[in-house]
């Protein structure tokens, strides 16, 4: 803490707060946009450029929140720009508010996308080797920890971790490669 400059501390805590406040919104945004829209690629490109400006990565206390924080700024800027030019699809402010307050709840507009993605994941799961599928489902659907899964299946925690990584990469490959 004391090594960190005041600015960075402020920045980090800002990002943390931002993430807590807008994390779910952003996730749903990414969920909706990333697989297809050119906009998303632009957002990514911009976020990436800004990430490159971080000089000392060790100062980033929570990289995930940091990325979300930056992405959030970028998304906002894109939105403002788009509102001016009228070319970019915007969020419905009402659904953003309800999402921020009830992260689990999805707006009626987003629900189909979300369900579609879930279905795609479920379909991809069918193509996984049984053990990968089982570990993924036990973890994601049933909420078991790595340790619990390891105990249940007689595997090491390391193996469970490895299979989960493989399962995700596999789902990712099957999901968008059709």
């Amino acid at each position: 803490m004391n090594e960190r400059s005041e600015d960075t501390t402020r920045e980090a805590s800002f990002v943390g707060a931002t993430f807590r406040r807008y994390g779910p919104e952003l996730q749903h945004y990414l969920l909706r946009r990333l697989p297809r829209a050119q906009d998303a690629e632009d957002v990514i490109q911009e976020v990436f450029m800004r990430l490159l400006r971080i000089k000392d990565s060790t100062l980033v206390r929570d990289p995930r929140a940091y990325i979300y924080g930056i992405a959030l700024h970028v998304v906002r800027e894109f939105r403002i720009r788009a509102e001016r030019t009228g070319t970019w699809l915007t969020f419905d402010p009402e659904s953003i508010r309800s999402l921020a307050e009830h992260p689990a709840a999805l707006s009626p507009d987003e629900l189909p996308d979300h369900l579609d993605m879930q279905r795609q994941i479920e379909r991809a799961l069918q193509k996984l080797p049984p053990l990968h599928m089982t570990i993924f489902v036990l973890h994601k659907r049933d909420g078991y920890s790595y340790e619990e899964i390891a105990g249940k299946l007689g595997l090491s925690v390391h193996t469970v971790d490895k299979y989960l990584v493989q399962a995700k990469a596999w789902i990712r490959a099957l999901h968008w490669d059709r």
Partner: peptide, 25 residues
């Protein structure tokens, strides 16, 4: 993540995948 935008994109996609996985089945 700073190596390539592709890395960033894949990471965010994985996050989205995680978010969607919570409600499967």
């Amino acid at each position: 993540v700073k190596i390539s935008p592709r890395h960033l994109q894949e990471f965010l996609l994985m996050e989205a995948l995680d978010a969607a996985s919570e409600g499967i089945d």
